[in-house]
């Protein structure tokens, strides 16, 4: 009886967590303009409208450019940094770590505002360079963390064994360390890409009308209109990110990358 009550509570809480998602998916296939429940049928008109809306097309393209550049840069710099802090102690390491982890704590609007002002100082405001830099800084901690966890899981004797068998530091890096952290790097890159693709607050500050990313375009649309076009876009984003995360979890053990250990 106690167990039944507990599991009812868990199911209720999970319903609360997933309700908005279900509502969005429902409205996205609702044929009427008014957001009415229950839906009056099934239609994919809103999807057609969303996909053909020029602002969303441009924003999607911008988003892909920014995400590809930012998450890849974050992957390169973050992996190198993770390797560095895994292997070396050096003066100023604490400061460097503090600065590079800080985007996890700094409010995104503060950071976005900072990059806006920085862009203004270099006449780069609303340009791709500043957007990519802002996104890269925001997602890098996740890559660094994922790679760092992978590195920590490698038996340190492996690198020594390779050196003992004649592998130079470069060969140890490319033939032993790199193959073993590829899953961590891939997981970190995926998380970074998803976070960058869906990042809104900082993007609102650093993008302009020609460079806005998808979430910013959605925000601008919501403020103007109240039809389910955004539901369709949202549904597409939910499905895409969920699929990416499921694939990531199946192939590389996302739980380990996120350090969610349950058993």
């Amino acid at each position: 009886m106690r167990s039944f009550a507990f599991w009812s509570l868990v199911v209720a809480l999970l319903t609360y967590m997933t309700l908005p998602t279900i509502v969005v998916l429902m409205t996205s296939v609702n044929p009427t303009e008014i957001l009415a429940f229950p839906p009056q049928g099934v239609s994919f008109d809103w999807y057609a409208k969303a996909v053909s809306y020029p602002d969303f097309q441009l924003a999607f393209k911008n988003g892909l450019i920014v995400t590809a550049c930012a998450s890849t840069l974050a992957l390169i710099v973050g992996s190198a940094f993770a390797w560095l802090i895994h292997h070396y102690e050096f003066r100023g390491r604490g400061l460097l770590e503090g600065v590079l982890w800080s985007p996890l704590i700094i409010p995104h609007f503060t950071l976005g505002f900072g990059f806006l002002l920085l862009g203004g100082a270099f006449r780069l405001q609303q340009g791709y360079v500043m957007i990519v830099l802002a996104h890269m800084v925001l997602v890098m901690p996740f890559v660094t963390r994922a790679v760092h966890v992978s590195l920590a899981n490698i038996d340190p004797a492996l690198a020594r064994a390779a050196a003992n068998l004649g592998a130079s530091p470069w060969q140890v890096l490319t033939r032993i360390t790199l193959p073993l952290v590829v899953p961590g790097m891939a997981g970190g890159w995926l998380i970074a890409a998803v976070l960058s693709l869906t990042e809104f607050t900082a993007s609102l500050y650093v993008t302009g009308s020609r460079t806005q990313t998808l979430p910013v375009a959605m925000y601008n649309y919501i403020r103007e209109y109240a039809d389910p076009t955004v539901s369709a876009i949202s549904a597409l984003l939910i499905i895409a990110t969920t699929l990416i995360m499921l694939v990531a979890d199946r192939t590389i053990g996302l739980r380990r990358v996120l350090a969610i250990d349950t058993h």
Binding site: L197, T198, I238, T241
Partner: peptide, 21 residues
């Protein structure tokens, strides 16, 4: 795990819009 973690990755604008609906 899947049910409780995936909302983390849909982004704040999608989640906020969902709540508006």
């Amino acid at each position: 795990v899947s049910l409780s973690i995936t909302p983390l990755f849909t982004g704040e604008i999608v989640r906020t819009f969902s709540w508006m609906l």
